[in-house]
Design a protein around this nucleic acid. Structure first.
Lengths: 237, 237
DNA sequence: TCAAAAGTGTTTAAAGTACACCCATGA
DNA sequence: TCATGGGTGTACTTTAAACACTTTTGA
């Protein structure tokens, strides 16, 4: 016979994934238009319940994989939400993870099957439950962390140009950066590896394509670094 | 009749508090020597289960208050732990909070009643379950955040000297800092307010006592700032 | 008057910032 | 040949880092 704790109530434990993608211009969220109850027809984050034999990260990877067909992306737990009435159906505590996804690599079929779409972060519709505030918190965390760690690359294709990287940072912080200083700062990290190739899509002068120097990248994941000129993050963790 | 989600299992949800204190020399943890089962006689973090009508932060404040008699201190959620076998009695997911406590202000009686003691972080005994790794994670988070935000003050008495503050940072990072540069850096933030008084305890030249400029402090909580000369944090969030 | 700790100053190096100029490309 | 965007350079300012000297205190 298994022993159990007494006099304590058990509760539903959900996981919600905030999935960020970058389309070259804007930061996007992968959202689901619900074709199931409750809140049929409304938009929500991708979520699910914790399985009996699953770790938290394992469960959120499962959710991410089912939706996007991706399994090896940047995924980080960032906050657990547990307001008593956050879910009107039944009390549910949500452990939230945010994911950074290369928008070109995900599986369009899996996404359509889940009735999901990429939606511009700026123009997103209202979401169900407390998902709006979860998204706000995830964006704050992304902004905070991306200023100090080289996360941005996770949102770009394997080969990318410095102007693309800059556009990404500008989208994350909803700001504009000086081209010349940004370039110098990024190059000085040693994170970029030249491929010798050039971006064929460009209309004017073609920018050089770089890949990430994975060795340096792993070092930088732990140490940290300022990726922005002025650290004027309005809000932070 | 209330609606419920189907086909999903409910789970125990605990909260664990990692309570940091500073005694003037070392960083300390408030730990409990358990006089109850399971793991009778072993050391653990202070924890408890989520009440049916409690928010997460509310519950962890309750736990903190019961133990220390303090209610208004720095308390921040930092990570949720959910490995399947982390609690051998029954599966339990733990939402963990770390707290910064002014060691002089807590309630000695409440602490003794819970069989708790302040234990040096460096020389702490092994803890039950996964509490060792929770403490490691909390220390990492504290180090990360204290380098960029003025948290340290929460661990000091209302009136404190710059050398005391420096000792605190040296304890947090287990390092030594240059007195002169540290002093200049701290003063340049405008966070300190002179009281005109001097530290009577000092044996040699008496250092000035400062209080926190709460107005500036609130600004800095959001913006951020480097409190250390070299940001060589071995590990981070 | 001496040792120990606090307080202030200075010099140098590195980083951040704001610019200007030239180059490649396709219409 | 012109507009657009990419690439490189430079001068200026701010901040960080390393270091030396003076002051206060109680024994």
């Amino acid at each position: 016979m298994r022993v159990h704790y007494k006099h304590t109530s058990r509760i539903l434990l959900a996981l919600d994934c905030i999935i960020f993608g970058f389309d070259g211009e804007e930061l996007n969220l992968l959202l689901i238009k619900r074709n199931f109850e409750p809140e049929y027809g409304k938009w929500s984050l991708m979520g699910g319940f914790l399985g009996e034999q699953e770790d938290l990260e394992e469960a959120s990877r499962r959710i991410l994989y089912n939706l996007t067909g991706l399994d090896s992306n940047y995924l980080e737990q960032f906050q657990t939400f547990g307001a008593v009435d956050r879910d009107p159906v039944e009390r549910t505590v949500s452990v939230s993870y945010y994911a950074l996804v290369n928008i070109e690599e995900q599986d369009g079929n899996a996404i359509r099957a889940h009735n999901a779409s990429w939606i511009s972060l700026k123009n997103r519709p209202a979401l169900i439950f407390d998902h709006d505030s979860i998204v706000d918190a995830a964006l704050q965390r992304l902004r905070y962390k991306a200023a100090l760690h080289p996360l941005g690359f996770e949102l770009l294709p394997e080969k990318f140009t410095i102007p693309q990287l800059q556009k990404l940072y500008e989208a994350i912080y909803d700001t504009s950066l000086d081209r010349r200083n940004f370039s110098r700062k990024i190059l000085s990290t040693g994170l970029l590896q030249s491929t010798g190739e050039k971006d064929a899509n460009s209309v004017t002068k073609k920018a050089q394509l770089f890949t990430l120097n994975t060795e340096e990248y792993l070092k930088f994941q732990n140490g940290f670094f300022n990726f922005l000129p002025e650290l004027t993050l309005a809000e932070s963790i």
